[in-house]
Simulated assay, not measured.
Amino acid sequence: MSFVDELFSISGRTAILTGAGGHLIGEMSRGLGKAGCNVAVLDLREEKAETVAQQIRDAGGSALALACDATRKSDLEHCLATTVAEYGSVSIAVNGAGINAPTPFLDIQLEDWQAVMDSQITSTFLSCQVFGAHMLEHGRGSMINISSASAGPPLSKAFAYSVAKAGIMNLTQNLGREWGTQGVRVNAIRPGFFPTDWNRKNFITREREAAILGHTAMQRYGEVSELVGALIWLASDASSFVTGAEIAVDGGYSAMTI
């Protein structure tokens, strides 16, 4: 094995991911599978989780598909126990469950606000509790939360989402500090714009696209595969002195003013 292969190797480790039937976390799940991890694919929609898990298996990897409401601690505990029974201890966790909504601020209903908060910050909090306790028990782990370009400064048209992502970043820093001497690292990936069909329909008008790309140094959207390198680095021992950090993968969006 070469120096680089050894430095970044995560082969044989077990990873668990929430929201893993979706656009970004689905690709992260496939990337971890290609890197040799055993992958537990968790999603509220079991059929979406199974699709991703089968893609990992078809590529020669090992994966479980598990239905999971990440806002329910009991679901997360059950999925962790199932994963441990199948693969042994979990050392990589990606907490990526969450929804968004484009409702104008004065029209947001409390239940809609709460739905975004629960799906984003509450699910991340519970995942960090459940998976973090397991990692602390074993004295090793890499927890990776999903922040956003909206975590600050906030994006227009994404009020609850922006607040929740700012909270996720704060929680990441808090836990990086809390667990810094206990072998468990906690970091966040801050994606820029990786639009789904839903994003394009609900958020991205022609004018908004011009504003986004004009504020992105590379003047293009990201491809989901471009998140995998940062993910593997954070999951591996190559980032062994990195905790409480937010890693921007945004084509230079966060570097731009005018």
Rank of each mutant, 00 (worst) to 15 (best):
V4T: 11
V4E: 05
E6L: 10
L7H: 05
L7R: 14
S9F: 13
S9C: 10
S11Q: 14
S11D: 09
T14W: 05
G19E: 06
G22C: 12
L24R: 13
G26L: 12
M28Q: 09
S29I: 03
L32W: 11
K34I: 01
C37M: 06
D43Y: 04
D43N: 14
R45L: 09
K48T: 08
V52K: 06
Q54P: 02
Q55V: 00
R57Y: 04
D58W: 02
D58R: 12
A59N: 13
G60A: 08
A63W: 06
A63F: 04
L66M: 10
C68N: 13
A70L: 15
A70K: 14
R72Q: 15
K73I: 05
L76T: 10
L76I: 10
L76E: 13
H78K: 11
L80K: 14
A81D: 15
A85N: 15
G88H: 12
G88S: 12
S91C: 09
S91I: 02
G96Y: 07
G96D: 10
A97V: 06
G98M: 12
N100G: 02
P104C: 09
F105D: 01
D107H: 05
L110Q: 08
V116L: 00
V116R: 00
M117S: 03
S119K: 01
L126T: 01
A133N: 14
H134V: 02
L136D: 02
E137C: 01
H138S: 07
R140F: 00
S142E: 04
N145W: 02
I146F: 12
S148M: 08
S148W: 11
A149M: 14
A151I: 01
P154L: 11
P154W: 15
S156D: 10
A160H: 05
A160V: 01
S162T: 02
K165F: 07
I168G: 11
T172D: 07
Q173G: 13
E178L: 14
G180D: 03
G180Q: 04
N187A: 10
A188V: 10
N199Q: 09
R200G: 01
N202F: 04
R206T: 09
A210S: 15
I212Y: 07
L213F: 07
G214M: 08
G214E: 08
T216R: 08
T216N: 08
T216E: 04
R220A: 07
V224A: 10
W233D: 00
A235S: 12
S236D: 01
D237K: 08
A248G: 09
V249T: 03
G251E: 08
G251T: 05
A255N: 06
M256H: 13
M256T: 11
